[in-house]
Design a protein around this nucleic acid. Structure first.
Length: 498
RNA sequence: GGCGCUAUGGUGCAACGGUUAGCACGCGGCCCUUUCAAGGCUGAAAUACGGGUUCGAUUCCCGUUAGCGCUACCA
C-alpha cells in the first residue's frame, strides 16, 4: 500500500486532435506541481468516444509531451482498455439507487433508422443541431427516473436500449474545494440527471474520469477551467461511489488574439508546429508557464529548475490569457542568447542534421570550432531554424548574394579593384586573427582613399552573401583564411556585373 | 435562454486597503556601431462603468456591461 501522502496528479488528453497549447499548458502545470511537491504524475488517454477517437493521434500527443519535457511516471493508461471497470461502477451506483436506467432515445444512437424509442416518453433533450440562435430549455429531470418496475420491464421486453443516468437530488447543494477558484457551491436543482453509461455500454467522461481518478488515487485534479461547471457532477459521483473527492485546481483557458477560444484559424496551435518552427522546448515551457501563473514578482526568465522550485497552485490566476506569439519569440531569443553554448549545441546540431548540413561539415569535425561559430552567430538568431541559413553560408559555399545586400553595399565602382587588393593582402597575412584582418582591411581602404565602412560592408556581402551578419573580422576568423580569400575573389565578377 | 467564472496599458503578469500603480513583450526615440541583431537609456500607453463600505479603494460588497465557460448517450 502506498502510505506516502505525496500528491498524485495526471494529464488526461483525448486523442481527438493533436496536442494543442492549452493541453500542453495543463500538462506542464501538472508536471511542475508534481515535481515541486515530489509527487507522481501519470498519463491517461481518455478515448471513450469511439466516434471521434483517432488512435493514430496518440503517438503525436506523446511525442509532443516528450518534446515539451513533460515526463510522466506512470502510464499511459487507456480508458478504452478498461470498459468493464466503468460498467461495474455504473452498476454499483445503479444498485445503490443513486442512478436509474434511462430509455430515452439517444440523439446519437448508432441504431439510427431503427430508433425503437419507447412509444410514449420519447424525446426530451436533443441539442437541436448546430443552427445558430437555438434556445434550448433543458430538462433537468429525466422522465425515466420515476419509471415503475412494470414500465421498465416493458421497455426491456421491447428491446429498448438503455443508458444509466445519475439520479441527482432535487434539493440541497454540492460543494467542493478548488485550489484556484476557492470554495465552490452549486444548487443540486441546477444539475441534470446526467448520463453515466451510454446505451452502447461505454462510459461518459463524467463516469470514467471519476472511476479512474479514484482507482489511480489521484489527489489533485489540475485541468482546464472549462471543466469547472461539470465538477459538481463528479463530486456527486465520488460520493455515490463512496470515495472522497480530490482537490481540484481549474486553470484559466488560453485564448487567441481576438479573445475567443484558440483554434486553427488563430494560426499554429499544435505543440509540434512550434517544435518544427525551431523553438527551444525550455523557452516554450517558460513562456507557457507564465500564461496563467506567476511566481509573484517581476521575474520572467525562469529556467525549468526555477519553475519547478517556485511553482504553486496559489500562483495560478483566474483570468483567461491570450496567447502572445511575439512574446514567445522573445523568450526563444533570450534562451538562444543566454544559454551556455554547450546546452545549445545539441539543438543546433539536430537542426543542421535535418537540413543535411551536418555530415562531413567542419561543425561535425571540429567541436571547438562549431561552438565558436554558434556563439558568433546566435545573437542574430530568433529561431533554431535560423542556424541553417547561417550554416549554409558558414559551412558551405552554396549560397547566393542577397539582392538587397548587393544593391545596398555593392554600389561603388571602385569595389572590384579594392576587393582584389584586399584578397591579395589577406592572402599574404602570416597570422590569421581579428587584428590582422582588421589592419589589412583598413590599410586597403586608406590606400584607396575610401572610408573603411564602404570596404567592410562590401566585403561582408562577398564572404557570407548577406547584409546581416556578425562583425566582419570575427566572421573572417571563423571562416578561415583560405575560405575568405577564395570567396572574395569569386565575388568580384558578380560585383562588376552589378 | 439558464447557471457560473472573469475584468489592471494592445498583450502577459506585479501591487493581496495607503505605491508618483511596478515589470516584461510589442510600438516610438536616443546611445552603442562596420551591416543586422543583442545590450543600455528613454517615451506613449491601464485599474471597464455606476453605486456603496472605509479616514483611505486597483484591492472588499452590490449592480451594469463585456468576454469566456458549462448547459451532449463530446471530452
Amino acid at each position: 500500500m502506498d502510505r506516502t501522502n505525496k500528491p498524485r496528479v495526471r494529464f488526461a488528453p483525448s486523442p481527438t486532435g493533436y496536442l494543442h497549447v492549452g493541453g500542453a499548458r495543463t500538462a506542464l502545470f501538472n508536471w511542475l506541481f508534481a515535481r515541486h511537491e515530489g509527487g507522481t504524475m501519470l498519463l491517461r488517454v481518455e478515448d471513450t468516444d469511439v466516434e471521434r477517437n483517432r488512435p493514430e493521434l496518440v503517438d503525436g500527443i506523446l511525442a509532443g509531451l516528450k518534446w515539451l519535457g513533460v515526463e510522466w511516471d506512470e502510464g499511459p493508461y487507456f480508458q478504452s482498455q478498461r470498459p468493464d471497470m466503468y460498467r461495474a461502477a455504473a452498476e454499483r451506483v445503479l444498485d445503490s439507487g443513486a442512478a436509474f436506467a434511462c430509455y430515452c432515445k439517444a440523439s446519437s444512437y448508432a441504431g439510427g433508422d431503427a430508433a425503437p424509442a419507447g412509444d410514449d416518453s420519447g424525446e426530451e433533450q436533443e441539442p437541436e443541431g448546430d443552427d445558430e440562435g437555438v434556445k434550448f430549455k433543458k430538462n433537468i429531470t429525466c422522465p425515466c427516473r420515476d419509471l415503475s418496475e412494470s414500465e421498465r420491464a416493458a421497455r426491456e421486453r421491447e428491446g429498448v436500449p438503455h443508458a444509466i443516468r445519475f439520479r441527482t437530488a432535487r434539493s440541497g447543494v454540492t460543494t467542493f474545494q478548488d485550489a484556484v477558484f476557492g470554495e465552490r457551491e452549486v444548487k443540486n436543482e441546477e444539475i441534470e440527471d446526467f448520463v453515466l453509461l451510454r446505451s452502447n455500454g461505454l462510459p461518459t467522461y463524467q463516469l470514467s474520469v471519476v472511476v479512474d481518478d479514484i482507482d489511480m488515487r489521484i489527489t489533485h485534479v489540475i485541468r482546464g477551467a472549462d471543466h469547472l461547471s461539470n465538477t459538481p457532477k463528479q463530486v456527486l459521483l465520488y460520493r455515490a461511489l463512496g470515495a472522497e473527492p480530490p482537490i481540484f485546481a481549474h486553470v484559466p483557458l488560453i485564448l487567441g488574439a481576438d479573445r475567443t477560444r484558440l483554434s486553427k484559424r488563430h494560426g499554429a496551435t499544435s505543440v509540434s508546429s512550434y517544435a518544427d518552427e525551431g523553438f527551444l522546448p525550455e523557452a516554450f515551457r517558460n513562456f507557457l508557464a507564465l500564461l496563467g501563473w506567476s511566481p509573484g514578482g517581476d521575474s520572467e526568465f525562469l529556467r525549468t529548475s526555477e519553475l519547478v522550485e517556485r511553482f504553486t497552485l496559489e500562483g495560478v490566476s483566474r483570468t483567461n490569457a491570450v496567447f502572445d506569439r511575439p512574446k514567445l519569440e522573445w523568450f526563444n531569443t533570450q534562451y538562444l542568447q543566454k544559454l551556455p553554448v554547450e546546452e545549445l549545441l545539441p539543438h543546433v546540431a539536430a537542426e543542421l542534421k535535418c537540413a543535411n548540413l551536418w555530415e562531413g561539415s567542419q561543425a561535425a569535425a571540429d567541436p571547438g570550432w562549431f561552438a565558436r561559430a554558434v556563439d558568433l552567430i546566435r545573437p542574430r538568431t530568433r529561431l533554431l531554424h535560423d542556424f541553417t541559413t547561417w550554416a549554409r553560408a558558414f559551412f558551405t559555399d552554396d549560397f547566393d548574394y542577397e539582392p538587397e545586400a548587393r544593391a545596398k553595399f555593392w554600389k561603388d565602382e571602385r569595389l572590384p579593384g579594392m576587393l582584389a587588393k584586399l584578397a591579395d593582402a589577406l592572402a599574404a597575412l602570416p597570422e590569421w586573427n581579428h587584428d590582422a584582418c582588421d589592419a589589412a582591411s583598413r590599410a586597403v581602404a586608406a590606400a584607396e582613399g575610401v572610408k573603411a565602412g564602404l570596404l567592410i560592408n562590401a566585403t561582408r556581402v562577398a564572404i557570407v552573401g548577406r547584409a546581416v551578419a556578425p562583425p566582419l573580422f570575427e566572421t573572417m576568423v571563423a571562416l578561415g583564411q583560405e575560405r575568405v580569400v577564395t570567396r572574395l575573389r569569386r565575388a568580384i565578377p558578380s560585383i562588376s556585373a552589378h
